[in-house]
């Protein structure tokens, strides 16, 4: 395994705008740890670059940020990067964390069947709340942090050398901790708990649970 991380992070609407900046934290951490990072950002998060970069550089772990569906993950302007039944073999022998909606429902299992190592993601929509006035500074958004913090925790754990299952567990714990923060009598954000719980419940770890970066 090369220990190389490939990241896709388009940026063309509020959602991908947030994911773009929160993924930057992961990229920064990876680089600090001396991990090679292939950053397909903004316009570079397209199918051609994705496929050719994966084939040429052979990353061991792929972090996909963007929109999706049960059978696909998209990049810039909703262009499909990877789709079940079309090109899931592109991630053969690789591990994936897909921060996108629903892809763990069909694309995840199809990828594992096609030889992917581990597939972490969500088998239904991923929902997060954010503060409208924080668009210019997404990393300062404490509301978004409730959701994207646990998501990032998964990648942080991977970068620290933990297995897919360990990283999944740590992310789940982080979701729970945030839920617990909100259920106390002093919280004013309890209305966000249903969405946090939803994301926690629909996060899955497929394939080789011992997979590492």
């Amino acid at each position: 395994m090369s220990g190389t991380l490939l990241v896709t992070r388009p940026k063309y609407d509020d959602t991908t705008h947030y994911l773009f900046y929160w993924a930057q934290e992961i990229i920064n951490l990876a680089r600090e740890k001396g991990i090679k990072v292939l950053d397909l950002d903004i316009e570079r998060a397209n199918k051609n670059e994705f496929e050719s970069m994966v084939a040429k550089m052979r990353p061991s772990f792929i972090f996909l940020n963007g929109h999706g569906d049960a059978d696909r993950i998209t990049g810039v302007d909703d262009e499909t990067l990877i789709q079940a039944g079309k090109n899931e073999e592109v991630i053969k022998n690789k591990s994936v964390y897909a921060l996108s909606c629903s892809s763990a429902k069909e694309l995840g299992p199809a990828s594992i069947d096609a030889g992917a190592n581990a597939y972490l993601g969500y088998n239904d929509v991923f929902i997060f709340s954010y503060e409208s006035d924080k668009l210019s500074k997404p990393l300062n958004d404490k509301t978004a942090e409730l959701f994207l913090g646990p998501s990032n925790q998964l990648m942080v754990s991977i970068l620290k050398g933990h297995t897919a299952k360990e990283s999944y567990d740590r992310s789940q714990k982080c979701f729970l901790q945030n839920i617990q923060k909100l259920v106390t009598s002093e919280s004013s954000d309890a209305s966000l708990i249903p969405y946090l719980l939803w994301d926690k419940m629909h996060q899955v770890c497929l394939g080789n649970k011992n997979a590492v970066l």
């Binding site: 909100l182 259920v183 106390t184 009598s185 002093e186 309890a190 708990i193």
Partner: peptide, 9 residues
Amino acid sequence: LPLGIREEI
């Protein structure tokens, strides 16, 4: 139920 939840509709 946690105290914060008891005030929910």
